[in-house]
Design a protein around this nucleic acid. Structure first.
Lengths: 204, 204
DNA sequence: TAAGGATGTAAGTGTTCACTTGCATCCAAG
DNA sequence: CTTGGATGCAAGTGAACACTTACATCCTTA
């Protein structure tokens, strides 16, 4: 009943009923919060009957959990650190910062949803707390490594990593509750300037 | 009926009924959001009857508006920039950063409440959006002035000011949803390192 | 002591919400 | 053609919630 392996017509339409519901739920909850969004609204936004929502997901909570697990981004950042960094401080930080904002923007709505809180299931908080910790570790290790190679001046890798992360985190979250993401060009100007500032501070 | 100028016994107890309700509302809403907090809970937490809440504030929305207007911090930052800065880049940034975190921590719960959103009255959003803009302007002007005096290297005052603000903003908000504020010493270590990094980047 | 204001208690109203039930309809696959 | 799964529709259930009403109690003050 809950699993719909739809090999029929509904699959060929570009979004299945389940997906329409999940996307509608994310949209609405990101704006109005979990508590503030009703199942009736979600169903209406997805263009299906409210009953269909319950037939697919059983409960509102389960709908959110499914949405979160299906659409939360994966570990692109780890791959980036393993494969794409060159050892040039400025270029590397630029790449990290750009990737960071790309990932955050892709998950904009989910992050907003988690930020708003409400009676969310525990899984949601865990999932959205995982990524910052991962990034911090990657960045610390990178900076420590650069310091060992005398390519950077890093008296306190943890604090420098956190400073860099939080600068980007702050930039992103300050725009999170605006209607639109900030413009591409403007964001990139900030990235260039802030990375420049950072690289200058750490360069021996 | 709503105005209780209590010259009687209740005033001499260190918190009046109204204040107990306001503080309880802030506490609960900061944790569970506006929608997720019921008037019954608030009254219970304040140790009064639910009816008393409505006798004092009429509606739940009005309760929140009152709480916000009574407890939101004022313009300490402007005063700081006008009176306490010395012209020494490192020392000034340190003072700004420390003051920033002090203010943010004092309004921790209100900021959390506004962040969570829900069906909040418009006033709440306006009030909590006012302060960042003010700080940005102060900081930009300060940096531009330092650059003119050749005491700092500031190619793009807006971006440098934003970088600094967002670094602190990110640090604060990353701890906002934790149970406790981060420890004093830890925060001050971060402030010192991040300000040091910043001052180094901007020093000619 | 009398009066008035603040509070408590009990009960209730109307609404909204998450979620259910029963039945009809459509449509693809066997 | 028939069967079964997915969906729509109409109606409803029980709980929770914001908010109200009416009345009793306490305490301060005049």
């Amino acid at each position: 009943m809950f699993t719909c392996i739809q090999g029929d017509k509904r699959m060929r339409e570009n979004t299945s009923t389940s997906d329409k519901l999940l996307l509608a739920a994310i949209d609405l909850m990101a704006e109005k919060g979990y508590d503030g969004t009703t199942t009736k609204e979600i169903a209406a936004a997805a263009g299906v009957n409210e009953v269909t929502l319950f037939r697919h997901f059983g409960t509102k909570e389960n709908l959110l959990k499914t949405a979160f697990s299906r659409y939360h981004y994966a570990d692109e950042m780890t791959k980036l650190f393993r494969e794409s960094l060159t050892g040039d401080l400025h270029a590397d930080l630029l790449l990290v910062s750009r990737t960071y904002h790309k990932l955050m923007n892709r998950n904009r709505k989910l992050l907003r949803l988690a930020q708003k809180g409400g009676n969310l299931p525990e899984e949601v908080y865990e999932e959205s707390g995982r990524h910052p910790q991962q990034l911090k570790k990657l960045l610390m290790d990178y900076l420590a490594d650069m310091a060992k190679q005398k390519k950077a001046l890093v008296p306190n890798p943890e604090m420098q990593a956190l400073s860099f992360m939080w600068m980007n985190y702050g930039a992103f979250f300050s725009s999170l509750n605006k209607k639109e993401a900030v413009s591409e060009e403007w964001l990139d100007e900030f990235i260039k300037e802030s990375v420049g500032l950072f690289a200058r501070a750490l360069t021996p």
